[in-house]
Design a protein around this nucleic acid. Structure first.
Lengths: 229, 229
DNA sequence: TAGTGGTCTAGACCACTAT
DNA sequence: TAGTGGTCTAGACCACTAG
């Protein structure tokens, strides 16, 4: 080890001690670690601070340091396939279009590409347990997903992940509306039925990787979101 | 000041220095702060550590400490008043009911209270720029919000914050549906118009502080969400 | 009362950056 | 070369908790 970084060594030692332990299990006290590693207490505290801010440990003044209960996590950025899998539902989809279209002004701005250049367009009718649930139009910067249209993946988000473009950030808009006749026909609902419109702009780092517009059947889909602040 | 907490004083001093500064602006160096406050360097570092982990400052070894570019933040847990204010819209509301009702089974479970005990119920018709936008039924554990019904606040979330119960976590469900005749009348839309149903369970720490059901006019409201993972 | 974490001191050496 | 943050030491006193 070229650079020792004692606080890292201590941190990883404690992490390995603690991983798999039940919440509430006592971690070594700061002074124990001082003795064991022969370091100053500030160094131990630096190590434990990291684990506390990671949510691995909790400190209670006067009592000690303990394994923290797993944190609640906000819902991440997931695609339809994942979301359905999480609910234990068999998701499937039928591709209605997979082509390239010149980007209109709004789309171009959202995708951060020049207006008028062709972008990848993929339209799918998605089903859950065999029943139509939603209609998705996904738009992507063709330079980021070469070959996508030639071999369409099962899950767009898995494919993006494989390209190192897994969205880590999404801006979503949700609104209730009524189905257009075309949407109604595809979703097999009466024209004018209530639908949930969902627009998404998904980013990986600073790059916009997907802009999508989805229409969900109001009677067949509920969106769940966990928020934190 | 009964307890000085030097690192807090230093942290807030730096925060006030820095707030409003452009990203990239240099913050005082650690040794400057040592001189200014007459403290040890570890104390200064403790103060700056907090601002760094808050995302206010960034450190660059060998260069210095600088104001960080604003982080992308996921949308927090906000109430309607805040949300409208953020959009620059004048929000108002009319109380339709403010009473206590025995909790049904589902509501009791969601609120973590025994079934059948009375819970606070507050129904409001909310308007934006004078037009009806949504109808909200909020349910709260009466023991957590004594006096709420006697003097109804303008903003529920502000009131909760004042009680130390600001929600920091919410589980939301969203679905499109059609308005019931009663909802339609209050929202001033035709019966059967598309509406967005929004159920929320808001928590502060481990305590459920609010369970609410909101019906938004589909033509008057779009929900925006930012997600990260 | 013994042990814990919270806070703080007054130094030190290092690698790195900018000039 | 001067200044910066990164790491580390060897103590100290405090308030709090548990037995």
């Amino acid at each position: 080890m070229s650079r020792s970084l004692k606080h890292v060594a201590i941190r990883e030692y404690v992490r390995s001690l603690v991983e798999g332990s039940a919440p509430g299990t006592a971690a070594p006290s700061e002074r124990d670690l001082v003795d064991r590693f022969g370091v100053a207490r500030m160094t131990v505290r630096q190590a434990l601070d990291a684990l506390v801010s990671e949510g691995v440990l909790e400190r209670f003044p006067g009592r000690g340091t303990f394994v923290a209960a797993p944190r609640r996590t906000a819902s991440g950025v997931t695609g339809f396939s994942e979301e359905m899998a999480r609910r234990g539902i068999v998701a499937d989809s039928r591709t209605l279009a997979a082509d390239q279209l010149p980007a209109g002004e709004n789309l171009a701005r959202a995708l951060q590409v020049p207006a008028g250049i062709p972008v990848v367009h993929w339209r799918r009718l998605r089903t859950a347990d065999g029943r139509p649930v939603c209609l998705t139009d996904a738009y992507l910067d063709r330079t980021r997903v070469p070959g996508l249209l030639e071999s369409l993946p099962t899950s767009l988000y898995d494919d993006l992940a494989a390209r190192g473009l897994r969205p880590s950030w999404a801006e979503d808009m949700l609104a209730a509306a009524t189905a257009t006749p075309e949407e109604a026909a595809l979703l097999e609902v009466p024209s004018g039925a209530a639908v949930l419109r969902h627009h998404r702009r998904a980013l990986a780092g600073d790059a916009v990787v997907e802009v999508s517009r989805t229409v969900y059947r109001g009677d067949a889909y509920t969106l769940n979101v966990q928020l934190c602040s």
